[in-house]
Nucleic acid binder design. Structure first.
Lengths: 218, 218, 218, 218
DNA sequence: CATGAATGAGGATTCATTCAT
DNA sequence: TATGAATGAATCCTCATTCAT
């Protein structure tokens, strides 16, 4: 007949027979889609189309759009916590460790814009999906305790002033690093400055680092 | 002949015949809806239902969902810029002016969570609607120049260190104040600390203020 | 979570699972609807209701109202060209072949009033949909070349006068046969003569045939 | 938002105050609109916008979309009949009169494509509006009687063959002339020949004339 | 495991028409 | 006579999801 194109699947869809690969494939595409368009704006059809498998598999593996989105979130946080753990800050001198943490946090956000967008989306939804996660263990972070011990050591060593609250300090690190990515577009529209442009990376990184370190100096 | 005759009006519907009120009513409801559910998740039907008028009027005045959303954005930014202008920071001593700006920015975000959410939504859309606004004048801010002159005066007076970049400094203010609202839910889910809870307002406000002021101290 | 679960199917709805039948069913109903009410006047809802399937399937198979209408057009022209090809005029004596073509054309239009109406509708739209058809091949006709060769043979055999242009002659055949159906209603309203009434078929058919044959007689 | 609208004008203030002009203006725009988009496709809003007056006036003068369309139809037919009457064929020699009628009919259709389109639209609607017209007198034509008398005189004078039916002959004239305009677009799409292009006017006009005259030659 | 067909319930948008002034 | 505001009822289209095989 004519232009009747019922989202048919690709004829040569290779039957993977590798559930883990299939799931990872779906997850990767879904992550992009949700990061790009939000939860409501994300289309299951679209995800299915860009996936090597069919739409039915999404439901087979993830149950629902909601389930898929949760899986995407979980994967993002697991990856982030994994990277944090790799830092091995415990053994390092406090100031150096703190500097490393700030730089890592900045670099992570800059290189994981999609993740930042997922977090934005999730906050729009008041962390509904995150809270509904069966196990938040992979999401939980020990970073606060870590910062606490680093600050304490720094105070002892006389390189950090007394009275810095670890939670407050970490939230400030997160805020400053996150904002560069999260608000890139509105800031650019209003102030004509693209925080996300690569030529501005280093400067903004330095400014954030300096501000944070000065704020805890003795 | 093929007569299609509209019925009487909705039972309790008051025919305002006051376009400005009607538009303002729609805008207020729409602002809530988009802040709550995002652009894609926001429902025109829902907005119409919570409005004194009908869905038809939304299209009569705003043309489309897109147009309505743009109007909502514009209104938010106009309100923010208006409030900024009311501060009259120019005449004040530099440190005091900066403190005032920081406090204002923090308070504004805390008391305008819906606005923060709109900005989040708009960033998800890469500021597409903001950029498409016919007149961005009400959106543009002179705050950077203001900060610049305050910093300069502070340097002259010896109360602020040299080398602080105005744009960087303002972005940091914005980041720290914005984040408290924008990421309230994910932070709470992960760290068990509610940045948005009223009992934490003052503490976080103080921490931010201290950090920012220390970072520019001589 | 936000589960939206479709109910059971329509009580009497038979799930065909036979795409070709489903598509053909939709096409048949749509053809009637568009012929009856035009493109703008044709209602997708109405088509869906008279179909064995649901409105959703129209979009599943044809993508849009436009796509459906195009498919209807294409089907009509394919049918017409198919019928033309069945005539096998090549082997027949020229005058007989021409007479056969005229009679066929008249009869076709008389018995395919809906098709004529579709062509009217399409001309109102300046053949926009026809031109946009991805494959116009089934629409293209070889009838002009056929008429040309018949006229040539007729001239050689001395039964047809020289100087008759094939395209002009065929357009006249088409015009005379088409008009009987296309303008049936306005002509009847103005002259009180119903070209489409069955008791007038034969007379009009004879008049057209005689006129056309006389016009090419030597 | 915009400033409040001015009050209504005082009765008798400067205004058009020329109902006939206003009506004619509306009618002209409506004629174009309906010819372009058909009855269902024609938009009252669109007509109002292109008119010097407001939408309300359309309803004031014509009552409804239907009434407006009827008025448009009536105006077209009145104009056509008026032009026919201007021909004064009665006094002329029969063949010359017939040739004049054919040429007039051809030229009229070619130069009144919008009228042809209105007739197409009306036939799609099975002349429903034409039939519903309160007075069809302006629509009725005496052309058949005219042709009848011309044919009769031609037979008497020996320049026209016996047995030509006046109604049939006139319908053929109409068909051939009308088709050039009505089916311009589909014919062009299928055969690649633009009957409506000015460079093809004369040729098609000649072909039609020759065919019609030959068909009634003794 | 896999797939293509199928679907109910919305979702945004448009239309002719009337009302208050 | 004139107009801007207002509206109910469609109208086209989309979405997440399930069924038969």
């Amino acid at each position: 007949m004519v232009a009747a194109k019922p989202r048919a699947q690709r004829p040569g869809a290779t039957r993977t027979n590798d559930p883990e690969r299939t799931k990872a494939d779906i997850l990767a595409v879904a992550s992009q889609e949700f990061a790009e368009s939000g939860y409501s704006g994300g289309r299951v059809d679209e995800i299915a189309e860009r996936t090597k498998t069919s739409k039915r598999m999404i439901y087979y593996y993830f149950g629902s759009k909601d389930g898929l989105y949760q899986a995407v979130l979980l994967e993002y946080y697991a990856k982030l916590r994994g990277a944090e753990a790799e830092l091995h800050l415990e053994g390092q001198p406090p100031l150096q460790a703190i500097q490393r943490l700030i730089e890592f946090t900045y670099d992570w956000h800059i290189t994981h814009a999609d993740g930042v967008r997922l977090v934005m989306v999730e906050n729009i939804h008041r962390a509904r999906h995150l809270s509904a996660l069966p196990s938040i263990e992979p999401v939980n972070s020990k970073v606060i305790q870590l910062v606490e011990s680093m600050l304490a050591r720094g105070v002892t060593e006389g390189v950090i002033r007394k009275g810095v609250n670890a939670l407050d300090f970490y939230l400030s690190i997160a805020a400053l690093c996150y904002f560069s990515v999260s608000n890139r577009y509105t800031i650019n529209a209003i102030f004509g400055y693209d925080m996300g442009a690569s030529e501005n990376f280093a400067a903004r990184r330095g400014a954030i680092l300096e501000m944070l370190l000065r704020s805890i100096a003795p």
